[in-house]
C-alpha cells in the first residue's frame, strides 16, 4: 500500500500503476456536475477560478449534511462518467488527480495520459465508511449549489485504487 500526500508530485504520479492501492492524505476538492459546468464556463470565459487547479485533486462527491458533532456526513463518490465532458479541459489547466467511481471515456483516458495525471477509485457506495477518513471540511465556492458546492476536504489515509494511470492504463481494461 503506497502512501501519497497532496499536492501530487509528478514523481508520485508516474510511479502509480492501475490497480495499485493507495492511502491518500492531504487536501482535495469536492466538485460534481454543476460545479464542473461552472468551472469549465469560467475557463472558457477567461474568468478567475475559485480554486487553483494546478496539482489539485477533485473528488466527485456531494456529501450529506454534517450531523452535529461530526466533521462530515456520508460522503462517497458519485459516477465519474458524467464529468467526462468537462474533464479534459480541467486537466489541460493543471488538474492532476480525480477520485470517483466507475469507467471514464476514451477522451478522458487520453487526456490523463497527455497531461500525466491519475484517476483513483474510491470505495463505491461506502459514504459512511469514507467519512471516517475526512478530518476537515470547508466550503470554498458555489455555495448556492448546496451539496454540489465546491468544498475543500482534508483527508487522512483515504483508501483508493488507481483506476487509470499516467500511461493511460485502466483497471477496467
Amino acid at each position: 500500500m503506497k502512501k501519497i500526500t497532496t499536492p501530487l508530485k509528478e514523481a508520485d504520479i508516474l510511479s502509480l500503476r492501475m490497480g495499485d492501492e493507495v492511502l491518500l492524505s492531504g487536501e482535495i476538492y469536492t466538485a460534481r456536475d454543476q460545479a464542473h459546468k461552472r468551472l469549465v464556463e469560467a475557463v472558457k470565459g477567461r474568468k478567475r477560478l475559485p480554486i487553483d487547479l494546478r496539482s489539485a485533486i477533485i473528488y466527485y462527491c456531494g456529501p450529506a449534511k454534517t450531523p452535529k458533532g461530526k466533521i462530515i456526513g456520508s460522503c462517497g463518490p458519485t459516477t465519474s462518467r458524467r464529468m467526462d465532458i468537462f474533464t479534459p479541459l480541467l486537466l489541460k489547466k493543471g488538474l492532476k488527480g480525480m477520485i470517483g467511481k466507475g469507467t471514464r471515456s476514451k477522451e478522458v483516458r487520453q487526456a490523463i495520459r497527455k497531461y500525466k495525471a491519475v484517476y483513483f477509485l474510491a470505495p463505491a457506495g461506502c459514504g459512511a465508511l469514507i467519512s471516517k477518513y475526512v478530518k476537515a471540511l470547508k466550503v470554498i465556492a458555489y455555495q448556492d449549489l448546496g451539496p454540489e458546492s465546491i468544498t475543500r476536504l482534508k483527508v487522512k489515509d483515504f483508501p483508493l485504487i488507481v483506476g487509470i494511470d499516467a500511461k493511460g492504463g485502466s483497471i477496467y481494461g
Binding site: C61, G62, P63, A64, P67, K70, G73, S74, C75, G76, T78, P123, A124, G125, C126, G127, A128, L129, S131, K132, P147
Partner: peptide, 24 residues
C-alpha cells in the same frame, strides 16, 4: 475487499446513524 468495505460501511452507518450512501 470491495465487499468487505460495503459490509463495514453498513455497520458504521447503523451504529453512527449516518446515511449508508450520501445519495439518499
Amino acid at each position: 475487499k470491495a465487499l468487505e468495505a460495503i459490509i463495514k460501511n453498513a455497520g458504521i452507518a447503523q451504529k453512527e446513524k449516518l446515511a449508508i450512501c450520501q445519495d439518499t
